[in-house]
């Protein structure tokens, strides 16, 4: 997996799917889904104002709650390239990986500020701030998830492997 760079959106613990993408933005209309990005966050304007690729840096229990995959769609539509967190909801994790959005777990604390440039180096299992001020190790990603990401998501993986030709 290649390095991933972006501007950090820093979030705390227990950020659930209803905060990331409120249920009233559930839709089959991609524009409506995209508009719900971070719609339940008090500081959503800061996240939305960032120009360019974004990387979410979060704490414990990220993405708990609903299985609505529109949450992941909204992140991807708004140029979120990866998620780095202490821990994440089971279904949220699967949804992210299945949609081709890498999700990493921190092995140690990582200090970052919203808007700061960060880079994920999957080969070295670490995340670094572009300023060089901080770095942290990442836990190794499960090989099953790696295979899905390398294929471009579960749908592509299923076609590639013949699971659903």
């Amino acid at each position: 997996m290649n390095p991933i760079s972006g501007l950090a959106i820093v979030m705390g613990d227990h950020v659930n799917t209803d905060i990331l993408h409120p249920s009233w933005f559930y839709s089959l209309d991609a524009g409506k889904v995209a508009a719900g990005f971070m719609g339940g966050m008090a500081e959503k304007d800061n996240a939305r104002a960032l120009a360019g690729p974004r990387i979410i840096i979060a704490g414990r229990d990220f993405g708990a709650g609903s299985s609505r995959e529109t949450t992941i769609y909204s992140l991807i539509q708004n140029d979120v390239r990866a998620i780095v967190c202490v821990s994440a909801g089971v279904i949220f994790t699967r949804n992210a990986i299945n949609c081709g959005l890498p999700l990493f777990h921190l092995a140690e604390p990582f200090a970052a500020a919203t808007g700061g440039a960060v880079r994920i180096e999957p080969g070295a299992s670490r995340i670094v701030s572009a300023s060089g001020a901080g770095a942290a190790a990442l836990k190794p990603m499960n090989s099953h998830f790696q295979h899905i990401l390398e294929a471009g998501g579960l749908e592509a993986y299923a076609r590639k492997t013949g699971l659903a030709p």
């Binding site: 995959e69 749908e155 299923a158």
Partner: peptide, 27 residues
């Protein structure tokens, strides 16, 4: 996500998102 409820009957019941469901439908 609340598919887990069926575990009360001694089943393994797991919730998932739409892409997992898509592939489960197809395969």
């Amino acid at each position: 996500s609340h598919t887990v409820m069926a575990g009360a009957l001694g089943a393994v019941a797991v919730g998932m998102g739409s892409t997992d469901f898509l592939i489960a439908l197809a395969s």
